[in-house]
Design a protein around this nucleic acid. Structure first.
Length: 286
DNA sequence: AATTACGACAACCGCCTCTCA
DNA sequence: TTGAGAGGCGGTTGTCGTAAT
């Protein structure tokens, strides 16, 4: 009777993720992107977690270039405007905000924006084109979107096409990061196969526009990570035929990835600063 | 200093949709 | 065409930190 659970709740760990679990998951996904599905990931990676939990952890917390907190006025306006148009389609709204997740947007709405929205809008329901907010939410919606909305897509695309200092700064940071990784790679080997790692970095952020957030539709047999996220920082040759060997490999990954985490943190923090600058600049340009 | 209230956010739950055999 | 499996998504809950009393 009923739906079978996606995992055995009695045998999986629940609650907050530890740093070790994060390291295992992050290194596994970056190392074996496009090599399986979320349900089998925990077993292959040696994690005692539900596959869905792994997916959520990756999408909402571990993905590179994610930003947490510090929502700007422009982002507030976008969220308020889109909510007025489409309701609680958080994934759609998040897709318009680079580096934000639907969970982040949803939490931000529930804790901050909702009150503001309630104070500034009329109680009449919105004209949502037949797609009203989900049933349980009785929040009144505005008949018209709030003013002073910035089109972030336009703004960011303008910045992306720009050859100015910000792009150069982005490329500089990226080159610096890859240089550090190259140094490391000369003394490292693939934890799974023992092969020397070949550095095959993704294109620099300044030259390949970032994916549009969490709205990607992935194949059922691949990790649904963003385009920019799918390329592992390191690859072993013959990646498609790599076999995994459970927890021992996973712990080897964790050890091998310990230094990688510091570079990823560097990358994320650099992105944070860069994106904040880009948003500010885009607002001025508009 | 101790307790309570509240905010922020990570994580979970369960339904819906999509894909593929 | 259909059913099972997997992913996507929105709503809700749990936990922790901090401000207020």
């Amino acid at each position: 009777m009923g739906r079978s659970p996606c995992c055995d709740k009695a045998s999986v760990k629940r609650g907050p993720w530890s740093r070790e679990e994060d390291a295992v998951l992050r290194s596994f996904i970056q190392r074996f992107a496009n090599a399986g599905n979320w349900i089998t990931l925990p077993q292959k990676a040696g994690l005692r977690r539900c596959g869905k939990s792994c997916r959520l952890r990756w999408l909402n917390y571990l993905r590179p270039a994610l930003r947490h907190g510090g929502f700007t006025e422009e982002e507030d306006s976008i969220i308020l405007s889109l909510y007025g148009e489409i309701g609680s389609k958080w994934s759609v709204i998040a897709a318009k905000l680079r580096g934000r997740t639907d969970n982040d947007v949803k939490n931000y709405w529930n804790t901050k924006l909702k009150k503001r929205y309630m104070l500034t809008t009329a109680p009449s329901p919105p004209a949502t084109g037949g797609d009203s907010p989900s049933g349980g939410d009785q929040t009144p919606l505005p008949a018209t979107p709030p003013p002073a909305v910035v089109n972030l897509d336009t703004a960011l695309s303008t910045v992306d096409e720009d050859d100015g200092d910000l792009t150069h700064e982005s490329e500089r940071l990226y080159a610096e990061l890859m240089g550090l990784i190259d140094q490391k790679s000369t003394t490292s080997s693939c934890p799974s196969t023992g092969e020397s790692m070949s550095s095959s970095p993704p294109p620099p952020p300044g030259t390949s526009p970032a994916a549009t957030g969490s709205a990607g539709s992935a194949s059922s047999t691949t990790w649904p990570v963003d385009v920019d996220d799918t390329t592992p920082l390191y690859e072993c040759s013959g990646r498609s035929s790599v076999e995994l060997h459970g927890a021992s490999d996973a712990h080897a990954f964790a050890a091998a990835a310990s230094w990688l985490d510091s570079f990823q943190d560097l990358l994320a923090s650099s992105y944070d600063e860069l994106i904040a600058l880009q948003l500010a600049r885009a607002a001025v340009m508009l």
